[in-house]
Amino acid sequence: MKSQTLLILWLVVSILLLSGCIEGKQGSTTTAETNPATLSHLREWKADGVISPNEYPHKQSLAGGKFIVYWRNDGEYLYMALKGQTTGWVAIGFEPSNAMKDADIIFGWVKNGQVIVIDAYSTGTYGPHPPDEELGGTNDILEYAGKEEDEYTVIEFKRRLDTGDHYDKSLIPSQKVKFIFALADSDEFTQKHNIIRGSGELTLDKA
């Protein structure tokens, strides 16, 4: 009788584990990063300077929320929004080799209602970071928009994962991308970041 009871208990526990009813199993959830089907429910991306609900499946808050990066991608394009607690410029740089060196940097700001976005490249460890065009490359930001509101600046942009430009990092779906970020209170992107700077890593979705 005792052996039959143990057998029944073992069967019940096995069923619970397989069905996901045990608490430990419930803690292993599927996210948009690992479940591409979730991406089909996203709303249409628009470069309008507004981060709308369900526009981006991924969000990373850094520096206590002073800088937030949102992103999504398909097999060809990267769509991104930068939100920084500043009325100056916000920036993100992809895949630096050392500090700022070799980083593929996007700067953006809003001045007198006009949105400016610069496709730049850091040639030195701590700059300078001229626009790609000044280095013989191309401006590969396909669409962009921005908005300045409540002491925050939001910049949205779209670019190809692989632009073919030597001064842009070639990105691929599922890649873990290291990045640096910075904020300044100036609308001149040649001015040093004087609010905050840091680094992080994001993961692109599968195609």
Rank of each mutant, 00 (worst) to 15 (best):
G124H: 07
A207L: 08
G65D: 05
T38Q: 13
V154I: 11
T138A: 14
K46A: 03
S97M: 12
T34S: 03
K46T: 02
H58P: 12
K158C: 05
N139P: 14
I22K: 01
G108V: 09
V50P: 01
D48V: 03
V115R: 00
D150G: 10
Y56P: 07
N98S: 15
T38K: 13
G108T: 03
K111V: 07
P128S: 10
C21I: 01
G200Y: 07
N35V: 06
L161R: 00
G108S: 09
G20C: 00
Q85F: 05
L62A: 10
K2N: 14
Q4S: 13
P128W: 12
S19W: 02
L82N: 07
Y126K: 08
F189Q: 06
G88L: 01
I22T: 04
G164S: 01
G146L: 09
E76F: 10
I172E: 12
S61H: 09
M100I: 08
A99T: 13
E76W: 08
W45P: 12
G64A: 15
K178Y: 12
E95Q: 12
L202P: 00
H166R: 06
I196Q: 07
V90R: 07
E133K: 15
K111I: 07
A182S: 12
E156L: 04
E156F: 11
K147S: 15
K192G: 02
D187Q: 03
L11R: 05
L202W: 01
D104V: 09
I51T: 03
N73W: 14
Q4F: 14
G84Y: 06
I116E: 09
I118T: 11
V177I: 07
Y144M: 01
S40C: 03
G108F: 06
T138N: 15
T87F: 10
T153Q: 10
E188P: 03
K169S: 13
S52N: 06
A63C: 10
I141D: 09
L78F: 09
L11P: 01
M80P: 10
L9W: 01
T38V: 14
A184D: 11
I8D: 00
G113F: 12
Q26Y: 04
N35L: 04
W109K: 09
T87Y: 09
T30Y: 14
K178G: 04
G64V: 14
T125R: 14
Y77S: 11
D132C: 08
I116Q: 11
P53R: 09
V115G: 02
V154F: 01
S97F: 03
R43A: 12
E148V: 15
I195E: 13
T5G: 04
Y70D: 11
D132V: 08
E95L: 13
P130G: 02
L6P: 14
A37E: 09
E33F: 07
D48T: 05
Y79Q: 14
Q175V: 05
N112V: 14
G124E: 10
R72H: 05
R72M: 11
G108Q: 04
A37Y: 12
L18V: 02
V117S: 10
R160G: 06
H41T: 11
H41E: 04
Q85I: 05
N73A: 15
F94E: 04
G164F: 02
K2C: 13
L7K: 11
A120K: 14
L78D: 02
L6R: 12
I92Y: 04
D74W: 12
I22A: 04
V110Q: 13
G200I: 07
G49P: 12
T29V: 13
L16R: 00
D162I: 10
Y77G: 02
G49R: 02
E156S: 06
L135I: 08
Y77T: 08
Q85W: 06
T5D: 11
